[in-house]
Amino acid sequence: MSGENVLSQSFEIIGGNFGRAGKASTTVKDILKELGIDPSIIRRTAIATYEAEMNVVMYAEKGEMTLRVTPEMVHLHLQDQGPGIPDIKLAMKEGYSTATPEMREMGFGAGMGLPNIKKNSDLFEISSEVGKGTRLEIVIYLNPKVKANP
């Protein structure tokens, strides 16, 4: 597999800023469209990036999302500085959410965020340190055959 980048770009995400929320994800979508990436890959990436971005906005102080596009894959790396997740297994459970009443009023907190990311990724890794932050690695292969026969 070639490690050659077509493109690499980082986006800052600010915790608690619901006004700017979604900007990183919509920019990623525009970039992938510009690169001529397959629409089904763009759709899956859009869901994964938005859920990941909103997790930073809702729970962390700040975070960074790095998009890397190679001839084989869309790779997203997210690192935030925040409270971390004490029980990742529980956080991955559909329907489980720690959203505040205010967030729920806005239509967040369905407990679908992390499961949605996993569902739309070919590879998904999450690690977290309580009091420090959370890291996500998301890979979506451009060619579905690569996934079947890595």
Binding site: I47, Y50, E51, G107, F108, A110, G111, M112, N116, K119
Partner: peptide, 8 residues
């Protein structure tokens, strides 16, 4: 009215 639901 749930954003994640619409996204999914």
């Amino acid at each position: 009215d749930m954003l994640s639901d619409v996204l999914a």
